[in-house]
């Protein structure tokens, strides 16, 4: 299905470059975020620099009295691990999750 759509000329409002040619072959990884809440000192580096805006500061406090990050739209996480690298408190990390339904509606 993906192959045939690639050959048809774009309709009005559509552009070729909107869809990379190998989009059906590239699998976007998905990550699961683990937050060790009580290590956090609320620096917000992870919230500020998450490229997919997955994290947000929570309203509640941890035992140290700091607000900590929460994963508000975890589905967006692509396991880039930038939050894990930036966190000065070793309080957040990502684990890649394998997607089970990859071949059903994928392009290949």
């Amino acid at each position: 299905m993906a192959d045939s759509s690639r050959r048809t000329p774009p309709g009005p409002g559509q552009k070729y470059w909107r869809r990379p040619l190998d989009a059906d072959r590239i699998k976007v990884p998905h990550g699961e975020i683990h937050i060790l809440v009580n290590r956090c000192k609320g620096c917000q580096f992870c919230v500020e620099y998450c490229p997919r805006d997955v994290l947000e500061m929570s309203e509640s406090f941890n035992v140290k009295g700091y607000h900590y990050p929460e994963a508000v739209n975890e589905g967006e996480c692509v396991n880039c691990q930038l939050c894990e690298m930036l966190c000065p408190e070793f309080a957040i990390f990502c684990v890649e999750v394998e997607e089970e339904v990859a071949d059903d509606d994928g392009g290949s």
Partner: peptide, 14 residues
């Protein structure tokens, strides 16, 4: 005040 439950997980850096 809402206080988060203590985390028992380990970080890969540990």
């Amino acid at each position: 005040r809402e206080v988060a439950a203590p985390a028992t997980e380990a970080h890969p850096m540990d």
